[in-house]
């Protein structure tokens, strides 16, 4: 009983929002067409799952998210590590990242569509570009901050270059790499939805715009609920992986 009460107190803000929402519906302050009750939204969301609409579109979006994210990780982590080791590479690449960091890179998307078409290729490229920045920058700063003492100690004990890299530098940089990945994955999902809303023939973003064309708010809200759920689960996934591989943090 006491535990339940504590739970209520802790989550009271959400409960207030739900109550206020239902009150607006109940008192018909807004027309129901525009402001459907939450129970109705959940029913529609469930229908989207059972009728297979979700299963048609979600895998496509997830494929784009993970393809772009994986590419960015495969390119970004070694690049960041190499930048911290080689001065020449750092001099060449660092200006690009410093200049590109504050720029809204999604604005390039319409041009990418011209080059790569409306399919997955342009979206994966966009996700790749967007994820590359946090991954490279975090890896780079993380590995430049690895304590010199560790490296000296390893060298003293006769470790060769590759041993220093694999046994000392990489594990010591791991937490920063994960900071980058943790920023990048939600970003990948957001960019996937965004680019699919700009133009696509499949995917969660497409489903959303398709539903909004019907002007049925409960369908649109149901889509938003499902997208929120997926975003939340993706967040959970990367946290789980982090806890497994960077357990000492």
């Amino acid at each position: 009983m006491k535990k339940g009460w504590k739970f209520l107190i802790e989550y009271q803000s959400l409960i207030w929002i739900v109550v206020a929402w239902e009150l607006v519906v109940f008192l018909q302050i807004m027309p129901e067409r525009l402001f459907p009750s939450l129970s109705k939204v959940l029913v529609v969301a469930f229908e989207l799952i059972t009728t297979g609409m979700l299963l048609e579109n979600l895998p496509i979006t997830l494929f784009r998210v993970f393809a772009g994210f994986a590419l960015a990780a495969v390119v970004g982590v070694p690049l960041g590590l190499l930048m911290s080791r080689s001065k020449l590479l750092n001099d060449l690449v660092q200006p690009i990242f410093s200049l590109g960091f504050p720029i809204p890179r999604v604005a390039l998307y319409p041009i990418l569509v011209f080059i790569l078409g409306l399919g997955s290729a342009s979206k994966i490229t966009m996700i790749f570009l967007e994820c590359l920045f946090p991954i490279v920058l975090n890896t780079y700063y993380g590995s430049t901050r690895v304590g010199k003492l560790y490296l000296w100690a390893a060298q003293n004990m006769g470790a060769n270059r590759s041993q220093v890299f694999w046994r000392v530098l990489l594990p010591a940089t791991m937490p920063s790499i994960f900071t980058g990945l943790k920023i990048a994955l939600p970003m990948a999902f957001i960019i996937a939805i965004l680019t699919e809303m700009i133009g696509a023939t499949a995917g969660m973003g497409y489903l959303l715009t398709y539903m909004s064309a019907s002007l049925m708010q409960e369908k649109v809200l149901a889509c938003v609920v499902l997208i929120t759920l997926v975003g939340y689960l993706l967040n959970l996934l990367i946290q789980k992986i982090q806890r497994k591989y960077v357990f000492w943090q």
Binding site: F189, I193, G205, I227, T228
Partner: peptide, 9 residues
């Protein structure tokens, strides 16, 4: 974690 752009419609 919600992609806010989904709220646009």
């Amino acid at each position: 974690p919600v992609p806010k752009i989904a709220l646009l419609p």
